[in-house]
Design a protein around this nucleic acid. Structure first.
Lengths: 143, 143
DNA sequence: ATTCTTAGTTAGAATAATTCTAAAGTGTTG
DNA sequence: CAACACTTTAGAATTATTCTAACTAAGAAT
């Protein structure tokens, strides 16, 4: 879906989001969106950028992740009170969370159904329903 | 279910959990377990204790909340990456989360059904399934 | 009851993730 | 290419939480 045209994809996304395509944003966008779905923390993405030879400050990584989230290019996943994860999969889906390794795996939203939800309290509306399946035990490997 | 015998309830719970019934733990236990189900943060419980004239350090509040959680007298709820909530309701249930006010409301676990969950990855087991319904808009009032 | 032992409490320092600030840099527009 | 608004950045600041090391209190033993 987005393996061809390395930069063009990200560039277009940024334009559409009204974000200037700066060196930093393009590089982070590439790391995030090239290849399959990913779950990253700011710290991890920062390291990854460094290793890829892209010089970006941690503050910029945070800024960018939040801007991308506002622009709906990313989604924030709250599973761990210690760190914040950002997910490149913005489709309807849920998560497995490996409590021991701190890693996430997507669960297709089509597969899961949540039934019996009460109505949202008066004056409020449902913004999103998150299902988190917390796992224990030694897993294999994944993003 | 636990409105009578102010201290006895908590005292018994502590004993069963192998925790010495200290002044601090009794007081916090009373604040937590007398009355209906509650959702508290360490900071909030600390303030509440102060106001109730109980002198407890914030460190002790943290310690106690974690010990109670280990003893299954409380449950930790992860909904917000900024703060950690503890829930006095340890039955099977889920949550509405008011994003604007940061407050939680229980959803009875009997009402909700999550179907279509894939098997847990090899070598792992499901520890828990959390459903969080994120709400937007001005709510009324609740714990 | 008094002493001993061990668990519990505490103030304050330490940590860690994240945000802020103010200054310097860079896209974009005319 | 000049002007300006938007970005980036280093480093300080903030915030929730944990740690440390000394003090205190509970329960057991005497």
């Amino acid at each position: 879906m987005n393996q061809d045209r390395p930069y063009a994809q990200t560039l277009t996304r940024l334009r559409e989001a009204g974000l200037r395509p700066t060196r930093q944003r393009l590089a982070l966008g590439r790391l995030l969106f090239d290849g399959g779905d990913r779950h990253v923390t700011a710290e991890a993405l920062h390291e990854e950028a460094q290793k890829a030879g892209v010089s970006v400050s941690l503050a910029t990584v945070y800024n960018t992740l939040h801007q991308f989230t506002e622009a709906h290019l990313l989604r924030e996943v709250v599973v761990d009170s210690a760190r914040t994860y950002f997910d490149t999969n913005i489709n309807d889906h849920h998560h497995f969370f490996m409590e021991n390794t701190g890693s996430l795996m997507d669960i297709d939203g089509e597969k899961i159904a949540v039934t019996g939800l009460p109505d949202a309290p008066e004056g409020t509306g449902i913004a999103r329903v998150d299902v988190i399946v917390r796992l224990q035990g030694a897993p294999l490997r994944q993003s």
